[in-house]
């Protein structure tokens, strides 16, 4: 015989569930507040001050932000970060989509190649930076050596000392290293597509290209959104490769916003200005994430209507 649970039992169960949820989320919430939220407020305060890290902290209002607006190096780093984002969206996203679809459609060896693609992502950025510094060394490196040997002398440039090439070299390396990371994310999305949908599309005569654009792409949009957000926010905090290979130089030619922030805070010992730059990065990451979410949401809305 079935009997309805008494109301008091429901509320007690709900309370127990709430306690359980709290018990599980509270530790991470406390850590998140301690190590993310509190430092953000700390940085907000510091960004309104002039401080070298020692001695008295001087409150200067929004002077650091005004300084950023008139700082040539900040705008070059800002532009470089935007170029890095654009290059990521054009090349890294396209290549990650291509490779993940290739792996998805070519089942034999998929696991092996997935690991191969992912491998560079787990290597330290410092090691990658040092390795590519040697490869691109115009005087000792194998790239220019090969170019000279095959008669392409005019192509043998001082890659890391040339203002025009250095940004693209550093960007190329970052793009190369993390393609596999996005391949894994996008591939996970593809693997979640029910097999029957793919089979029926093939029975209906869809070729590989049609299958991708009409079936796969619409069904992996959520994963793409995640991937793009990681790409863009990763570009905004890009630091290691640029710092290891060129220290952001020559000058600030290969400096990104995070390199600029680090140099202000540590090399120039201007913690206030560095904090202001850090908050600009945070704000940009927030704005970019909102825009990406809006674009994907907007497209979804359009497709529904």
């Amino acid at each position: 015989m079935k009997t309805a649970l008494p109301a008091i039992g429901k509320s007690s169960r709900k309370r127990r569930e709430t306690v359980l949820v709290m018990a599980f989320t509270l530790p991470s919430l406390v850590l998140f507040v301690m190590f993310m939220i509190v430092p953000i407020f700390g940085a907000m305060y510091l960004s309104l001050t002039k401080w070298s890290g020692a001695g008295a902290i001087k409150f200067i209002g929004i002077d650091n932000y005004t300084n950023l607006l008139h700082n040539r190096d900040f705008w070059i780093s800002f532009k470089n970060s935007l170029i890095l984002i654009a290059l990521h969206l054009i090349f890294q996203l396209t290549l990650a989509l291509f490779f993940s679809y290739l792996l998805y459609r070519t089942r034999p060896g998929m696991r092996f190649f997935r690991s191969v693609f992912f491998l560079p992502s787990v290597i330290s950025a410092t090691a990658i930076g040092v390795m590519f510094s040697l490869l691109f060394n115009a005087d000792l490196g194998p790239i220019n050596y090969t170019l000279h040997k095959i008669g392409l002398d005019s192509w043998a440039l001082p890659w890391l000392s040339n203002k025009t090439t250095v940004l693209f070299v550093v960007s190329f390396i970052i793009i190369w290293q993390f393609i596999g990371y996005h391949v894994v994310i996008i591939l996970a999305g593809m693997k979640a597509i029910p097999e029957e949908i793919i089979e029926s599309a093939i029975i209906d005569g869809a070729n590989t290209v049609v299958l991708f654009f009409r079936v796969v792409y619409p069904l992996i949009k959520d994963m793409l959104q995640v991937s793009i957000i990681f790409m863009v926010t990763g570009c905004l905090k890009a630091f290691d490769h640029s710092y290891v290979m060129t220290m952001g130089g020559p000058g600030v030619s290969s400096s990104f916003l995070a390199v600029f922030m680090y140099k202000q805070a540590y090399s120039r010992q201007k913690l206030g200005l560095g904090s202001a730059a850090g908050l600009v990065i945070l704000l940009l990451a927030f704005i970019c994430t909102r825009i990406i979410n809006w674009i994907f949401y907007h497209k979804d809305e359009e497709s529904v209507t």
Binding site: S133, F136, N137, A138, D139, L140, G141, P158, W159, L160, S161, V166, M245, T246, G249, P250
Partner: peptide, 12 residues
């Protein structure tokens, strides 16, 4: 050197 950045710092 052609590339004074790649050949900069103490080791290179």
């Amino acid at each position: 050197p052609q590339d004074t950045i790649a050949n900069g710092d103490w080791g290179p």
